[in-house]
Amino acid sequence: ETQAGIKEEIRRQEFLLNSLHRDLQGGIKDLSKEERLWEVQRILTALKRKLR
């Protein structure tokens, strides 16, 4: 995994995270989306740690 590859994956995950946040802010309670949001946040945290 290169730095560029990790950064690209971070961009993808952040896009997905923002999309999930928008969907959930629409007021629709969706447990699967909430679980996915937490999963994406965990992935992002792990990726950012790899960059250090």
Results as ranks from 00 to 15, higher is better:
1 E>N: 10
1 E>D: 09
1 E>Y: 09
2 T>W: 14
2 T>V: 09
2 T>K: 06
3 Q>E: 11
3 Q>F: 11
3 Q>T: 12
3 Q>G: 05
3 Q>Y: 13
4 A>M: 06
4 A>E: 13
5 G>W: 15
6 I>V: 03
6 I>Q: 01
6 I>W: 12
6 I>K: 01
7 K>Y: 08
7 K>E: 07
8 E>C: 12
8 E>I: 05
8 E>D: 11
9 E>L: 07
9 E>I: 02
9 E>N: 03
11 R>A: 08
11 R>Y: 06
11 R>V: 06
11 R>L: 08
12 R>L: 14
12 R>V: 07
12 R>H: 05
12 R>A: 05
12 R>C: 07
13 Q>R: 02
13 Q>H: 13
13 Q>A: 13
13 Q>T: 13
13 Q>C: 15
13 Q>I: 15
14 E>Q: 12
14 E>K: 05
14 E>I: 12
14 E>Y: 15
15 F>V: 13
15 F>Q: 12
15 F>W: 08
16 L>F: 05
16 L>Y: 06
16 L>E: 06
16 L>D: 01
16 L>V: 06
17 L>V: 05
17 L>Y: 10
17 L>E: 05
17 L>K: 04
17 L>F: 08
18 N>A: 14
18 N>I: 14
18 N>W: 11
18 N>H: 11
19 S>W: 08
19 S>C: 12
19 S>P: 00
19 S>G: 05
19 S>V: 10
20 L>Q: 00
20 L>M: 03
20 L>R: 00
20 L>N: 00
20 L>D: 00
20 L>E: 00
21 H>E: 12
22 R>P: 02
22 R>K: 15
22 R>D: 07
22 R>W: 03
23 D>M: 06
24 L>T: 05
24 L>C: 04
24 L>V: 04
24 L>P: 03
24 L>M: 09
25 Q>M: 12
25 Q>G: 05
26 G>H: 09
26 G>Q: 08
27 G>N: 08
27 G>V: 05
27 G>L: 06
28 I>H: 08
28 I>Q: 09
28 I>W: 04
28 I>F: 08
29 K>I: 15
29 K>Y: 09
29 K>V: 12
29 K>R: 12
30 D>E: 04
30 D>H: 06
30 D>P: 02
31 L>A: 14
32 S>I: 14
32 S>N: 13
32 S>L: 13
33 K>S: 06
33 K>Q: 07
34 E>A: 07
35 E>G: 04
35 E>C: 08
37 L>M: 14
38 W>G: 09
38 W>F: 11
38 W>K: 14
38 W>A: 14
39 E>T: 04
39 E>A: 07
39 E>M: 04
39 E>L: 04
39 E>C: 05
40 V>Q: 02
40 V>Y: 02
41 Q>F: 11
41 Q>D: 03
42 R>F: 04
42 R>G: 06
42 R>I: 06
42 R>Q: 13
42 R>E: 07
42 R>S: 10
43 I>G: 02
43 I>Q: 08
43 I>D: 02
44 L>Q: 01
44 L>H: 00
45 T>Q: 10
45 T>A: 13
45 T>H: 10
45 T>L: 11
45 T>I: 13
45 T>W: 11
46 A>L: 10
46 A>W: 07
46 A>F: 09
46 A>R: 06
46 A>K: 07
46 A>N: 07
47 L>V: 01
47 L>W: 01
47 L>K: 00
47 L>I: 01
47 L>F: 03
48 K>A: 03
48 K>G: 02
48 K>C: 07
48 K>E: 02
49 R>K: 14
49 R>S: 11
50 K>E: 12
51 L>T: 01
51 L>E: 02
52 R>Q: 15
52 R>P: 04
